[in-house]
Design a protein around this nucleic acid. Structure first.
Lengths: 222, 222
DNA sequence: AAATGAATTATTGTATACAAGAATTTGATT
DNA sequence: AATCAAATTCTTGTATACAATAATTCATTT
């Protein structure tokens, strides 16, 4: 046991929510969770409280906790902020990235690019995550890095069900190539713009995204 | 009682931290707090857990909770993100602000400007906060609004002790005037730039800021 | 048969009891 | 007098017991 039961339970629950094992709207019964983890309700409640503060869980007074369900508007709003945070990462990274970080970033991009033309969406998801994480790190702003990671985690349960269009991996990877080059060459303004455009869901991608969302997104509260 | 004891205690503690009544580094003894609020340790712990997830409180395993103490580097990092979030607010607001919101924003600016030349820092702090809050709202991105508010709250205990230079109110108010005009006239790019510059602590203001920080900022952890 | 209301059941929120680990104090030794 | 170690005290973390409220079920009435 690392430190406390609650500290062990928290990341497990978080992971289950982030990966979609526990889907938005799912009830989180304290007693059931307590049995599952082999503890009393107390550490479960601590974990749920913390998760509610970070937005992954919604606690309705006297009515229990559920995996946070968000509306389309929330989702659009969050993507808007995500794009800006990542754009800031890119701008700062272009100014602050170190030589070893440049090598890592290039390697991560190559690793992504190797899947161009394929349809290995799950694997690309992981490699893409790694590339973006390196970008956050290269900003050399630890707070920003944490914020960007947290927001990405929060978006991921909704992102997983995004449209999986055959050519998407190639397109995404090409965008990566351009923005990685901009960062490495120190062109902050270009890196910022390319990253913002890369993260923003625009044009017909947006329409596709909307039309494939499960219906519950249309009525969820904040 | 609104909903639960923990839900009553949480905002009180938060306010005490944000206003500096409870200073960074202060130990938050569960038993003492429980007595003060007339409850058992349980709801206190729930509140502390939530505050730790939002970053205002730091819980060290088996060693109790303290008001989050942050380093100069953390502070600089947070300001960098704050500037970007507010700049995004301004950019979006320039595109989305409604006529009644324009009137409110103008009024808030006038209210700030009325203190130009004075040295009523505490009053200016409040009016300035109101103006910025209106700017967040005018972005019409509720998630962004919440994030910006939360980060501002998190920075406020450290901001309060900023240098109080005689001419600062006038300078700040003039910057407000320009950015409010940019937002109202719909000049998104200008509004964004002016807001980022307004929030960023730069030039000799930065030196002043650093040199007046209490010494504990130099050794705090993340 | 449907609907309303009372009673029962289940679940959350709080308090208290207990266990385990950190901090402190006291005493012994150099 | 200073330092180190053992023991005590204090604080946190977990479990359990209880109270309060929401959800459900069942009966009664129209």
């Amino acid at each position: 046991m690392a430190t406390s039961r609650a500290n062990e339970i928290l990341p497990v629950l978080e992971q289950d929510i982030v990966t979609g094992t526990l889907k938005p709207g799912t009830r989180l019964d304290e007693t059931i969770l307590a049995e599952k983890f082999g503890v009393s309700r107390t550490p479960i409640r601590e974990a749920l409280n913390r998760l509610s503060a970070s937005g992954l869980v919604e606690i309705r007074p006297r009515r229990g906790a559920i995996v946070a369900a968000i509306s389309v508007q929330d989702l659009m709003n969050m993507f808007e902020v995500m794009a800006e945070l990542e754009a800031l990462c890119a701008r700062l990274a272009a100014r602050r990235i170190t030589p070893p970080e440049k090598a890592e970033l290039r390697a991560a991009h190559d690793h992504c690019h190797a899947l161009s033309g394929t349809e290995e969406f799950d694997e690309y998801y992981e490699r893409n995550l790694h590339l973006h994480t390196l970008l956050y790190k290269a900003s050399h702003n630890i707070f920003l890095e944490k914020q960007a990671c947290e927001l990405r985690r929060r978006l991921s349960p909704h992102r997983r069900l995004q449209v999986r269009i055959p050519g998407r991996i190639l397109a995404s990877s090409n965008e990566h190539g351009a923005l990685v080059e901009a960062v490495i060459s120190g062109d902050a303004a270009l890196a910022e713009k390319l990253t913002r455009d890369h993260v923003t869901i625009q044009g017909e991608r947006f329409t596709d995204f909307l039309s494939t969302l499960p219906p519950h997104y249309l009525r969820a509260s904040a």
